[in-house]
Design a protein around this nucleic acid. Structure first.
Lengths: 130, 130
DNA sequence: ATAATAATAGTAACAGTTATCAATATTAAA
DNA sequence: TTTAATATTGATAACTGTTACTATTATTAT
């Protein structure tokens, strides 16, 4: 098992991901990190985002879109995608375990976990009169 | 709004998707449809799978993998991905509406729907002794 | 200091998908 | 039935997000 060496790039990437609630894509992280390390390469961003999510420091989120999103909060929690503005909000709550039990009841195999994405309307969009 | 003309290609594609429970990718559909129409092009398969899922005849499933999967059953239902063999099983049940209510309770916006993928072990893998 | 090697920048390659376009097939109307 | 209009096709190029490659640089343990 290969040891890990620190790098200023990885630390900057982690800071960017942990410093936002926007659940960014690799490209967004790249453009932000370049403000700190202008000549960082996109490959480095991808490499470190993968490494960090494999280590469990951050999360990789599959939003059903072309590109992956990342979340600086490694704890399992749900997300709501606003159908109006596209914003991804957190729902900070423990996993809804009853759901697994409910599914297991209708499935002849075993159920381990569930990955859920909610759609909805965020509070800002909700309050816009039109 | 542009009208639709029948095509033997689209009908073959639909038959293939409706004729399997394996939740195939475009590539799998392509290789199957070629048994019926050997010179069909991959672009045609993609084009029709998109069109059919936009029309609501089939479903496009985001499995969090590189390629999209399709489901000949257009009715909303859940899926379980076996962590051992990768098979995607159906759970034929109505959406678990309580889940939306539960989420709405902790969210200051509105909740419309949820998309869930379960992980687990399918019945075949479950029965294998090792 | 030095040696070992993890990480980098830069770039090419890759996979899945979408776009382009001339030729073909389907449909509605004459 | 021809004809005209146009949706669809096969073939292929282009595009996007991501990963792989490689020589160079940075980090760490000795």
């Amino acid at each position: 098992m290969t040891t890990t060496k620190r790098s200023r790039q990885r630390e900057a990437i982690l800071e960017v991901v942990q410093g936002t609630k926007c659940h960014p894509t690799a490209d967004w992280v790249y453009s932000e990190v370049r403000k700190i390390i202008p000549n960082i390469s996109l490959g480095t961003v991808y490499r470190n985002l993968s490494q960090l999510s494999e280590k469990g420091t951050i999360q990789k989120l599959h939003m059903g879109t072309a590109s992956e999103h990342f979340d600086g909060n490694p704890n399992p929690h749900y997300h709501v995608c606003c159908t109006q503005c596209g914003k991804i909000d957190d729902i900070d709550a423990e996993p809804f375990e009853k759901f697994n039990a409910w599914a297991a009841d209708m499935y002849d195999g075993e159920i381990f976990e569930h990955y859920t994405l909610f759609t909805g309307k965020c509070s800002q969009c909700k309050s816009i009169k039109f």
